[in-house]
Design a protein around this nucleic acid. Sequence first.
DNA 1: GTCTATAAGGTGATAGAC
DNA 2: GTCTATCACCTTATAGAC
Lengths: 236, 236
Amino acid sequence: MGRRAAQAPGFPTNDRVRRAALSLFALKGYEATGIRDIANEAGISVATLYNYMSSKEDLLISIMEEGLVQIRDVALRTLKDQTDPIEQLAALVRLHVWRHANRRQSAVVVDTEIRSLSREGLTHIISLRDEYENIWREVIRRGMLDGSFDVLEPKLVTLAILEMCTGVSHWFRPNGELNLSYVSDVFADAALGMTRAKRNDKPVRVSDVSRMDLEAIFLELDESNSSGARKTKSTS
Amino acid sequence: MGRRAAQAPGFPTNDRVRRAALSLFALKGYEATGIRDIANEAGISVATLYNYMSSKEDLLISIMEEGLVQIRDVALRTLKDQTDPIEQLAALVRLHVWRHANRRQSAVVVDTEIRSLSREGLTHIISLRDEYENIWREVIRRGMLDGSFDVLEPKLVTLAILEMCTGVSHWFRPNGELNLSYVSDVFADAALGMTRAKRNDKPVRVSDVSRMDLEAIFLELDESNSSGARKTKSTS
DNA sequence: GTCTATAAGGTGATAGAC
DNA sequence: GTCTATCACCTTATAGAC
């Protein structure tokens, strides 16, 4: 794997630890990442590392929690601006795709490391994930009731759309040739097709729904979060 | 994690090792699985285990290879029976969903342990996966040319459909309340919606395409494979 | 807050007897 | 083919000095 240069100092140690763990967990996986790797990447010793976390698993839990809470809150906030299920579904798809592309590390850890959790943390994370999934389910359900969507099985289609969008994190590269705004259009259009979205008996395409400034939405959230910054370990 | 009972004997040791590794890799992940776990699950000692594999990673590679070769071959064989891209896409979706539900362990390992491979095995596995993806891409491409499909970006939509179907392995339970044949219908319908599949200018639903006996297809393959059984380690 | 040193046990893999 | 015993190293986590 080779020795990586420690991250640039200047950031508080607390942040450096989180970033180090996040990038290593995303790259190699939680099990394959040792606490020496984390300490080294953060530029501190193993003993010092334990001043910023209570255990390796607690660090994982807090990283996953942050990611899930963030996307859940963004989703809830965004849905308040719209009432049309078609607009809402397109917005959810864009948000989810954006996050899985531009916050890839966080998304990957949330998506793949659930199996590394042991009971205590597991129930907590699962319940957060369920909250987020229920937001989607509710939009699909309402769209079926008002005739916007026509699907065989709302529950399954919800999962299908979610998995489809989650997959973006597997191949999207921030500096690649694909434009993220375009990618999120393609996926929103796919979701509208999957649900057979219709307005006035006419199929709806992505060009028929309004767009949104994803960058701004997540930026706003980043700011409102960093003011009340969460800690991994309560320091006395 | 607790001590699991070793698998019933009767099967050749070679098979028991493969089954043990497969189920443990799928359950806990490759990194979290020790060679002692595998040996214990297979009912042999660690030293004996090394008579049936050359290394833990080689065992992983051979498991992933088997899974990928199998689904690739099933896909190729099935496509030969049909020429209509719409029928072909529905068939691919059904096969992929079926496999990710009924051969869940194999599918999960193939989908999640790519990052555990180191160069040597990685290139081999990636090229197999690319072969399989290209089968899908070609079907979508042909469907676009003959007017069956209408998508914004064939490459992205191919990935989207694949990821959507792959997700089935995350929640499907063989003895749960969902009927697999129904699930594969829902997903085939979703894929037809995503691609805006049309025949004679009318949207195609899953009820408009022919079904197939998935059970029989995979059974046939199991049999043709077990005759020329692959070995993990060449025994002198 | 940060370090060096170390505890206590797990890791993949092998030697050599039977 | 299968085993017991062992190697060299790595793992998470902590004690105690500064």
